[in-house]
Nucleic acid binder design. Structure first.
Lengths: 208, 208
DNA sequence: GTCTATAGACCGATAGAC
DNA sequence: GTCTATCGGTCTATAGAC
């Protein structure tokens, strides 16, 4: 078969690499724009302009604006999974949980956390249908959930809280408006803001 | 003068009352729709349909969609001010702070908390220009800020946190996605959800 | 008969889709 | 680069109050 000759696979692979590289550029641009202005305010024209390609070419890669956003979410999910795997397996569960919380806040402060409106139903439907997205979400939730229960069992996290509530609270830090408010205030560095929110999140507002 | 005859003022007042009542109906509808779908997804036609009047009539009351949203924000701000004034003046500062936090969460769970995109600049400009909005915001911030500093001084709230960070953290509870997540989960009543988030907010995730 | 307010058609621009 | 739908905003004819 011709397709098994040495040159063909190379050519296909090269072409595939081009496509993949452009797709990566698209997804990165979408990620940035989603973080900067959100889903509704982001226009497909902007994405095409930022990547430097024709709008029609976008639709060769992604069938709709929702799929663009979904790809950006999958990207950040992949980054999260990579971060999770970089954590020491023998660390205390609470340390890993805190590391993840810090990481999400740093991504947000770096302007790299895509923000989607939770009430948009067509977007929700697209995300739910995406195997990549759902698998990533479940894997991350499982990892975090395991650490949460372990930390509660050893008394490091409040065992009176439902684990799911703790998980949601951690997820919410990825889109916490307090970070943006404090950054706009200009009184604190990014590192200080992260530590501040880490404190309120884990220690609470009350005195100890 | 004829305009000072008894019947004229009565008539004018009646007309004014009608206008005011309709304006209240409009603002309430906007408030509900903003809470349900957010600013971008809400259309002016929907508002008119919900109130049961023509779109052009809306524009007799409010010059733009942004002003509609602003009026809804002023409404909820007024409700907040009323709630603040209903609190006992001799109560412990921390109790009042907690009462306000509970109140904002209850309003959100009741589907009555308008949600605006923080990055929409035309909307921000309209809000900033609104004396009613800004005055309300400042009055509320001043009241909360005073309680925060008092609670920190007496060691009830962590004095190591900047008061502004505490204030923002409280404001953020009004749009905390954890409430919606837990409600969607269906495992908890609204009251339980409020107490859960109150605990994580004031006690933190760690064990005490 | 006049005047106001309304209802509903209408316009222009924008943005998603192809 | 075009097409079409949608949406914010406006215009006009009419109904009803005085």
């Amino acid at each position: 078969m011709k397709t098994l000759s040495p040159t063909i696979p190379v050519k296909l692979s090269f072409k595939a690499q081009m496509l993949q590289a452009r797709e990566a550029a698209i997804v990165q641009a979408v990620n940035r724009l989603l973080a900067e202005k959100g889903f509704d305010a982001m226009t497909v024209d902007e994405v095409a302009a930022e990547v430097g390609i024709a709008k029609a070419s976008l639709y060769k890669h992604f069938p709709s604006k929702e799929d663009l956003a979904c790809a950006a979410m999958v990207r950040v999910m992949r980054r999260a999974q990579d971060f999770l795997q970089s954590l020491p397996v023998d660390a205390a569960p609470l340390d890993n949980i805190k590391a993840v919380a810090r990481w999400t806040m740093e991504v947000q402060l770096a302007g790299e956390m895509p923000s989607l409106p939770s009430q948009n139903s067509s977007l929700r439907a697209t995300l739910m249908k995406s195997r990549d997205y759902m698998d990533g979400l479940i894997e991350i939730s499982d990892a975090l959930g395991g650490w949460i229960e372990a930390a509660q069992a050893q008394g490091a996290l409040n065992p009176g809280l439902p684990a799911i509530a703790v998980l949601y609270t951690l997820y919410a830090r990825a889109c916490d408006p307090v970070l943006e408010f404090l950054k706009t205030g200009g009184q604190h560095t990014d590192a200080q803001i992260v530590e501040l929110v880490m404190t309120t999140c884990f220690e609470g507002l009350n005195s100890r």
